[in-house]
Structure formats: C-alpha cells, structure tokens
C-alpha cells in the first residue's frame, strides 16, 4: 500500500454484504448502502464523461447516474445479458445528504455475513490491480470476495477531471 494508508486503515467492517460477480471475480458491498436491485434499463449517455460513467437512468422518476464497475476496475468489456443488473446505492455526499447511484454488475449473488475473522486486509497485488477501492478481502469456504468501498469510488468520480468531448477527427 502506497499513498492510500487512510483507506487501508478503514478496513471493511464485519456485517452483511451483498455479493456480486464481475467477470470471474466476486465482489461485495455493505448492504447498508443498497437501496434496490433493478433490471438494466435504457441508459441515456452523458457526453464528456469518463467511459465508466454510462449515463443516467430514470429510477421511478428520479434521475440517477449509472457507473459500470467492470470498466471502472479495468476489466475487459462484456456485453450485457439478462442477468446484468443495476444495484442502486445511496451514498452520503459531502453536504451530508445521500445521493443515489446505480452500479452495473454482471450478476448479483447473495447476501453474505462476514465476521471480523473472515475479513483480511487487502493484499498488495504489486500494482497489477487497482486496489484503491478495495477495503478488504472476505473468505467464505474456498471463495474470496473483494469488499468494495463505493464511497471512495464516488469521491473519485467527483474528483476525476472530465474529458472534453472528443474533438472530431
């Protein structure tokens, strides 16, 4: 861990996690932030955003941004299918309110309870994988689930310099 010490300290807390799959890997987010799981619906693209921000959707009258975690984590792209879902999360904003975000995942697996003993700090992958957003690794049986810190992802989206629309060739 290099300059991300604070995140490393804020290791994932034991509790209930919603686990999901991206590619072959298992990930989890704390259920505290999960508001709904919906089928993938038509996304309106917003020009000039980073590629992992897919755009906005209409969630029962509310306009919420949708982030593709697969792209965010640098995994190879994959076509959407009928198992592709959007996890709707409510994340706190700097102003103290909460804001809804949609997260596109390949498949939602289960609600898992991880004890403190199950959770280990994120190992140093030697820079091969972006581990900034991983709070810890949870073991259950022979499976390892990476616990994702959505808040720091959301924060990084705010901070990310947004590309101007690509000038035409």
């Amino acid at each position: 861990m290099t300059d991300r010490e604070p995140d490393a300290q804020a290791a994932a807390a034991p509790g209930k996690y919603l686990t999901f799959t991206l590619g072959d890997e298992s990930y989890g987010i704390t259920v505290a932030v999960v508001r709904a799981i919906i089928k993938l619906c038509p996304i309106t693209p917003v020009a000039g955003m980073p590629p992992y921000v897919k755009g906005v959707i209409n969630l029962r009258g509310k306009v919420i941004p949708v982030v593709d975690l697969r792209t965010r984590f640098g995994l190879p792209p994959r076509g959407d299918d009928e198992r592709t879902l959007v996890i709707v999360t409510a994340l706190p904003t700097p102003t103290g309110a909460t804001r809804l975000h949609g997260v596109i995942v390949d498949r939602v697996d289960e609600l898992a309870t991880f004890t403190a003993a199950d959770i280990e700090p994120t190992p140093d992958f030697g820079g091969a994988i972006d581990i900034r957003f991983i709070q810890g690794m949870a073991k259950s049986g022979d499976r390892v689930t990476a616990l994702v810190d959505l808040e720091s992802i959301a924060a990084s989206e705010m901070a990310a310099p947004h590309a101007e629309p690509a000038p035409p060739a």
Partner: peptide, 12 residues
C-alpha cells in the same frame, strides 16, 4: 431534474 454531483462539470 437535477443531474447530480458527478455531472457538475458537464456545463452543456
């Protein structure tokens, strides 16, 4: 509707 924080730089 408000577009929200993450689009605040998209002034278009």
């Amino acid at each position: 509707k408000d577009l929200g924080e993450i689009f605040r730089d998209r002034t278009d």
